[in-house]
Amino acid sequence: MTDSGTKRRGGGPLTPDVRISKALSYTLRHGAEKEGLKLRSDGYANVSELLAMNKFKSLGLTFPELKRLVAENDKQRYKLIPLSSIDDSDDTLSANVEGGEEDAAKYLIRANQGHSITISSEALELELLVPGSADFPQQIIHGTFYAFYPLIVASGGLKRMGRTHIHLSPLAAYREFNSRADPSGSAPNESDHRRPARGGKNKQQEALSGMRRDAEVVFIIDARRAAEHGGCKFWRSANGVILTEGNADGVLGMDYVERVEDRRGLGVLWEGGKVVKELPVGLKNRMPPRGKEFVVRGSRGGGNAGKGKKPKGKGELEKEEVRIDAGDV
Results as ranks from 00 to 15, higher is better:
A45V: 03
L66Q: 03
G327W: 04
I81D: 02
G5P: 11
K159W: 09
V268M: 00
W270A: 07
Y149S: 10
F177T: 08
L317G: 11
R194M: 09
Q205E: 15
R8V: 07
S299E: 14
S133H: 06
S184E: 05
H167F: 07
G143I: 06
M211T: 11
L59N: 04
G231D: 05
D249F: 12
R213F: 02
G157C: 07
G306H: 04
D192V: 12
R213W: 00
T92N: 11
R175C: 12
S299K: 13
Q139V: 13
P289M: 00
G265R: 01
I20G: 05
L279M: 01
A71F: 11
A32I: 00
G246I: 10
A147L: 05
V275G: 01
Y256P: 06
G200D: 00
A223N: 01
S25K: 15
L50W: 01
M254H: 04
R9K: 11
G327P: 03
K307T: 08
S186L: 11
P170Y: 02
G157T: 11
R9D: 12
I86D: 08
E318P: 02
I221Y: 07
T15V: 00
P311Y: 01
H165N: 14
R77V: 06
D91I: 05
A187K: 09
N285S: 09
G114P: 09
K38F: 10
L59A: 06
R194W: 05
L252S: 02
L124G: 04
